[in-house]
Amino acid sequence: MLSALLVMSAIAAVLGAVLGFAAIKFHTEGNPLVDKIDDVLPQTQCGQCSYPGCKPYATAIAAGEADINRCPPGGEEGIRKLAELLGVEFKPFGEDAVPKAKSLAVIDESTCIGCTLCIQACPVDAIAGAAKQMHTVIASECTGCELCVAPCPVDCISMQVIGEKIANWKWKYPVYAMTATT
């Protein structure tokens, strides 16, 4: 009786120690699901999902507070990826969130007064300039989030759609008529 008790408590103590050690050794910072969701999101940081950036939206999705169809820049492809990741049904965009063609912010440099408001609004530091100096968008860094458009006091920022060029041209899905064998 006593030996059985001792053996069991010894096993419990050893396993407990192992678990305790593992909990410290393999501790994960933050919620890994949030990072996985964040990885799928397009990182425009545009706030169209009503959250202040991609990470907060990912956190809300992980907590079950937000729908997966709130991210227009991610497109339907993004919803599909989220659905797959989370094991939920695909959900089409609502009427208030419609994907737009990918575009870039362009500053009309002759109108810009150098107020730095757009620089402060840009979530990815893609606008270069200084107070009372002309600003310009670093095209390669611009995510097309449109956050700089509203703060501009002289309305000199416009969104220009990135059209199809040789550099971003893609082969199309083959389309042809099919006939059934009779």
Partner: peptide, 27 residues
Amino acid sequence: RFAKSEIHAREHDKQLADKARVRHDYR
């Protein structure tokens, strides 16, 4: 060809997204 160019485009978008994430985090 369709599949290859779709995959290339996706990888390109992913790279851009990763870059944007890093810049956003730094900011």
